[in-house]
Design a protein around this nucleic acid. Structure first.
Lengths: 214, 214
DNA sequence: ATGGCAAGTGGACTGTAGTCCGTATCAATC
DNA sequence: GATTGATACGGACTACAGTCCACTTGCCAT
């Protein structure tokens, strides 16, 4: 992911539906814009690491980056957009593994196995970057479902689920399976019980669904 | 629900665990406080109905109620708390049906059936009050999981699931089953497909779980 | 090289959530 | 019905997200 509707990373041999989501064409870019974008991301990453994502205001990011607030918002839309951009590099790694990595995460394993592997991998990813993902999902209502990355994960889950169980409503159920991985819920459960328990529970749920008799 | 930690409504013959969540003891109340609380709820309900929940600011509510902002926030904490209070009466009806209404929603039916009935009923409730519930859940991060009502629903689902399938991790899975009923997701899916499709998909998911072989 | 202009910039401005604290009101006691 | 301590009130105040627009900068065509 990148700017408001900039490029999105990733590319390899994989279902064309996913690729369409993963690599739109770049529009053009002015030198100062590129420079400022880098300055902003640097500053944001540094401040987030130092004070925690929640405690950093957009003003602070703009000041630390040495740019005006207008520039910051023009490039990233809102705080969720900035968080998404900071996350991007890390997200791409996972997307890459899905598109062209080793099974069971990458192509090759049976769809049910790939699905379970994905949910487990995403849960790990989520736990690692919980604060950042949470901001990217909750900074504005509905943000989660507008993000390119969510659409990527959703499409991936829907395709796998459809392959494994064609009689199910894969499109809706993909949303339902991703719902327990909303950062806000995961954050609320942290402290209540360990991440492993949540991951095991979710695996149980998807396993039950995969076994479903029509 | 009521004030920041005021009484919560409901009471009848039902599992004591649920009752504890549904009716704490009232602390005491000063006359002007009661009066102002009513004025605020009246004004809020009116403004919400007239302009839509999202378009009404807390200042506007305070002004329309003829009270100061401080009073408003003191009583309800934040916008989510106000939304919760406005919802309360409607929520109590559903809670009442669960605690002492007719089966399959109320006691009497087998737990699996009660669970499916509850999820369907809650989905209907959600669709009816989507905007208000959405504000109550998303006005501040994690709000959904702190609300008394969420804890009530969670407890109910966990108990039923445990009764139906004791070998499962009912506590976590209750969160997982409620996750697709987050107002934010439901709102994002509105327009993508009709509510009935989402409800059917969720029923499919819980059915699969209830059939799960240990 | 330079003139024109689309794209980008920055910071003042607006609207809102939420806090703070001096003042007013209530109700219990004498 | 006066005293008094606790509770609640209200609006000025702060901090932050996000918008707007007069100005600047980089790039292309000439």
């Amino acid at each position: 992911m990148d700017d408001i509707n900039g490029p999105q990373s990733a590319s390899a041999s994989a279902p064309p539906e996913l690729l369409r989501l993963a690599a739109p064409t770049a529009p053009a870019a002015r030198a100062d814009a590129v420079r400022n974008r880098a300055k902003i991301l640097d500053a944001a990453e540094r401040l987030f690491a130092e004070h925690g994502v929640g405690a950093v205001s957009m003003d602070a990011v703009a000041a630390a980056a040495g740019v005006g607030k207008g520039t910051l918002f023009r490039r990233f839309g809102d705080k969720a957009g900035l968080a998404v951009a900071v996350l991007d590099a890390r997200e791409s790694v996972l997307q890459q593994q899905i598109l062209s990595g080793e099974p069971p995460l990458g192509p090759g394993a049976p769809p049910g196995e790939r699905l379970r592997a994905f949910l487990a991998a995403y849960a790990r990813f989520l736990d690692t970057h919980l604060d950042l993902i949470r901001v990217s999902e909750t900074a504005s209502p509905g943000a989660r479902y507008r993000i390119g990355a969510y659409r990527f994960w959703h499409r991936h889950v829907a395709i796998l689920l459809h392959d494994a169980r064609p009689e199910l409503d894969a499109d809706y159920l993909a949303h339902a399976l991703l719902a327990p991985l909303a950062a806000d819920l995961r954050a609320a459960l942290t402290g209540e019980y360990p991440a492993a328990r949540a991951s095991a529970g979710l695996d149980r749920l998807v396993t039950a669904l995969l076994r479903a008799t029509p």
